[in-house]
Simulated scan of single mutants.
Amino acid sequence: MSGARAHPDLVPRTTLIGAGALVAFALAATSIVRLAGIAPAASPVLLREQAHIAPVASRDLRFIDRADGSVVIGNARGGTVTVIAAGQKTGFVRGVMRGLARDRRARGIGDRPPFTLTLWRDGELSLTDTATGRTIELSAFGPTNRATFAALLPAQAPGT
């Protein structure tokens, strides 16, 4: 055999240099943020707490799946708030609740603890899992998706 290689390089050298530079930049940026003591962005929950923003309306809800594919949304104190029929266009509600239910299953938590839906004085709407403490800011998903959850609040809630 001659001095030639048995197989060519699989990754071009410039690509490897670029990848190394990207990793070095990421490490440098992370180090600068940590050393400079730059605080992470505050969560909406923390910001509301610091600004003493009070709730305007709140309701504890349970979401129960039926065998026919429908979802019963009930008041945690008893009674049905609404029923989402199978096939009804409510993908946002189902998607949010599917994610929260997955989190509960991973932690070994059943469906008994309620979720708290809260309308805040600043107009924001949030859904909190009372079992895990996880909060979803529903206003972030646009007015149409927000309205699907706002409709679950008591009728006298202003701004819904």
Rank of each mutant, 00 (worst) to 15 (best):
S43Q: 13
A101L: 09
A57P: 02
S43P: 06
T82W: 03
S139L: 07
T144R: 13
G108N: 03
S126Q: 07
V45A: 13
A57R: 04
L152M: 12
S43Y: 06
V81Q: 03
A76N: 02
R66S: 14
A140L: 14
V96Y: 00
V93C: 01
A42W: 07
T144S: 10
D122K: 03
P158C: 06
R66M: 11
R77K: 11
F92G: 00
L47V: 15
F92M: 03
A101F: 07
R5G: 14
F63N: 00
A86C: 06
R66H: 09
M97N: 01
T128P: 02
A42Q: 12
V81N: 00
T144P: 03
H52W: 11
R48Q: 07
G99Q: 10
T116S: 11
G79I: 01
P8R: 13
F92A: 01
S31Y: 12
R105S: 15
R146F: 04
E124R: 15
G3C: 10
T15I: 10
A106R: 15
I73K: 01
P12D: 13
F149E: 01
A21K: 12
D122L: 05
A131P: 05
P44Q: 14
T160I: 07
A24F: 09
A28V: 13
A36D: 11
D9F: 10
F92W: 06
T132P: 03
D9P: 15
P12R: 14
I53L: 14
A41K: 11
H7M: 14
I17M: 10
A42G: 08
F25T: 15
L138P: 01
G95V: 01
D60I: 04
R121E: 11
R13W: 10
V81W: 01
G37C: 12
A150E: 01
